[in-house]
Structure formats: structure tokens, C-alpha cells
């Protein structure tokens, strides 16, 4: 234990070690934040840029979320837009069909309470808040089936709210899209 004579140097050593650790801590945090910023900018994995609204009272009457407009739509540039809604306790469409290796935009909202969906086996994960439109760019690498649960508590039937995503081969999807404008798994 420090005696009166070595009190001075001991205190200086303690302060120096502490300063070094504080500097290291700041560097650690700086690197982590910098990494997140770099990846966000260079790999375009940033959150949705702007806030869009949709009135759940009139979703079914007009606008892009009317029933006949829901499902997967092939765009002129070859990309695909998927429009979906969540409601207690299902998604519409309940099974979404999309092509592999294609840029896809999910546009979705809620017709009643807060929902969300994640697609297991991918990092696709977002919220559906009534009144607002969720816009999420995604891409699937390989064909396959995924489950798509609602991941936000939405009422006493929440545990039953599981959708599906069927990823099909690009050419197969193109054939399907030639026959019908809005696609779901049943087409």
C-alpha cells in the first residue's frame, strides 16, 4: 500500500494507465461506429430514407394497397416489387413468390395494429406500423422456401401469424409474370 513517500509517483502511474485505457476505449468505439458508417454507405445497407404514409381506413378502397394490387409485380427494368399488408393475424398475400438473383422492393403496411415480419434464413427484417409505408430493398441468392413470421406482438393471435416466402428460379418467375400481372404462390 502506498506510503506517504511514494504517494506521488504511484498516483501519476495510476493516472497514466487510466488515460491509456480511456484512449483505447475511445478508439474501440470509434472503430465500431466507423465500420457501421462505412458499410452503410458503401454497401447501401442503410435504413429507409424517407417517411411515407398510408391511411389504414382506406387501404382497401384506393391507393397502391388495394387487394388487386397486392402480390409480386415484374417491373419494366426487370426488378420486382412486392406489395403486402399485415393484419391481425395474417399477411396478404399469405405466401409471397419472388425470383432469385433479382433486385426486389418490399412495400408493405399494416391494416390495423403494429406488425412486423422477418424471413428466416435471411437478414430481411422490418416493421409494419399502421399509417406508414415500409419500403425495403432486398435480394435472394438461391431458390427455396422460407417461413415469414410476424415478429411484433399484435394481439392474442400473434403466435399464429406466419407467412411464407417462396423463392423461385428467375426464368420460372418470368414465365409466371407473363401470364399474370400480380403473382402469389397460388399462381
Amino acid at each position: 500500500m502506498a506510503t506517504e513517500t511514494d504517494h506521488g509517483p504511484g498516483e501519476a502511474v495510476a493516472a497514466r494507465i487510466e488515460r491509456r485505457w480511456a484512449t483505447l476505449s475511445i478508439v474501440i468505439v470509434g472503430v465500431l461506429v466507423g465500420m457501421a458508417a462505412y458499410i452503410g454507405i458503401h454497401q447501401a445497407t442503410m435504413p429507409q430514407g424517407r417517411v411515407e404514409t398510408a391511411d389504414p381506413k382506406t387501404l382497401h378502397l384506393s391507393g397502391e394497397f388495394i387487394e388487386s394490387n397486392l402480390g409480386s409485380e415484374m417491373q419494366a427494368d426487370g426488378s420486382v416489387t412486392v406489395r403486402a399488408i399485415g393484419q391481425q393475424y395474417s399477411f396478404t398475400p399469405q405466401c409471397i413468390v419472388v425470383p432469385a438473383e433479382t433486385p426486389i422492393t418490399f412495400r408493405a403496411t399494416s391494416a390495423d395494429v403494429v406488425h412486423g415480419f422477418l424471413i428466416e434464413g435471411t437478414n430481411i427484417n422490418t416493421m409494419l406500423v399502421p399509417g406508414y409505408v415500409t419500403d425495403l430493398p432486398v435480394r435472394f441468392k438461391t431458390p427455396g422456401d422460407h417461413v415469414m413470421p410476424c415478429q411484433e406482438f399484435c394481439g392474442i393471435g400473434h403466435q399464429g401469424m406466419w407467412g411464407k416466402v417462396k423463392v423461385v428460379d428467375k426464368s420460372k418467375f418470368r414465365d409466371m409474370a407473363a401470364a399474370k400481372r400480380r403473382l402469389t404462390c397460388v399462381d
Binding site: P47, Q48, V51, T126, M127, V129, Y132
Partner: peptide
């Protein structure tokens, strides 16, 4: 709220 649509990037 990272995944929420009501706050911007």
C-alpha cells in the same frame, strides 16, 4: 426503431 418506417435514415 431501426426497422420502423416512421423515422428517417
Amino acid at each position: 426503431l431501426f426497422a420502423d418506417p416512421q423515422v428517417g435514415a
